[in-house]
Design a protein around this nucleic acid. Structure first.
Lengths: 153, 153
DNA sequence: CTTGATATTTAAGACAATTTAACTATTTGG
DNA sequence: CCAAATAGTTAAATTGTCTTAAATATCAAG
């Protein structure tokens, strides 16, 4: 049974995510429409970005689609020049997928443009509040990233 | 030109959102698959939940689809019993859309189940850290909600 | 070298979401 | 009361994504 402060923080995190989720969904839908990406492709791009490099079936597994579907979807991303597909030097059956410079740039710009409101939000705090919130987010980030890489540091 | 602490906080928020976004996308895709909802439907449900009540074209505008498409999509949600569609008393042309009790429950349960990792995350902090992070999130929430309702309080 | 398994690709078809166009019902403004 | 505008629905056609099935290429093991 979690104690009071744990419960309160959990609730706080859930509230924050609910509020943020709507904005995120809206932004993602707009970004997708603007760049002619499907939702799967957006999700794939975010994944590739995180992993830096992966293969076709990784993406299929992640999105719960067949690797045939993943292959077709990734082909479109290659055509658009946002990812590159190279033969793995270790196993010539597998194709290594990675973002191109253009792909990196597009995602980066997308985030910057889409989250201008974060700048507004940040500026609405007093300097001391800003430091307090920054410190808290730093803690959160560090722990969350630890969850992303469960083993082998 | 924003000052240093504003910039740092903005960067922190962006980093947090990037990390969170991947997890959110993954969770949303799973939730959609599980309940047989399209991405549009998920987004519609979140919107209806926020607005409490709205009409068909509101949803169309929000998702950037025609109201014909919105009408068809909402019809499915009615069939599944998660929203209800009633005639507006003020203007009999418009239909008021709102979540049913079942719809509320489903979204609530979905959040709770999907974000169990937030409990883990919360528990990984010391009590004093928990209070620090809670306080920061409370600040963030309050300001963000203020952005959601720009005018007429 | 041969057999079986794995990674990916391709083509064909199924299915779902969206648009277009036509239509009904209702309101608004002269 | 009438004409134009608005909100929503329906059907047909379009589009795009996914699955299935078959094929290719490579690896791993005997």
């Amino acid at each position: 049974m979690p104690d009071d402060t744990t419960q309160e923080l959990t609730q706080m995190l859930q509230d924050w995510i609910e509020v943020f989720m709507r904005r995120a969904m809206h932004n993602v839908l707009l970004f997708a429409k603007e760049h002619n990406f499907s939702m799967s492709q957006i999700s794939a791009l975010l994944n590739i970005r995180q992993r830096r490099v992966c293969n076709v079936s990784n993406i299929g597994d992640e999105l719960s689609i067949t690797s045939a579907a993943a292959s077709q979807m990734l082909e479109q991303l290659v055509q658009q020049g946002v990812i590159e597909r190279t033969e793995s030097p270790h196993d010539r059956r597998v194709k290594q997928i990675a973002l191109t410079e253009k792909g990196h740039q597009m995602i980066h710009d997308g985030f910057r443009a889409r989250y201008a409101w974060l700048g507004e939000l940040a500026a609405s705090f007093t300097p001391s509040e800003q430091e307090q919130v920054s410190a808290a987010l730093r803690l959160l980030l560090e722990r969350t990233r630890r969850l992303d890489v469960p083993d082998r540091g």
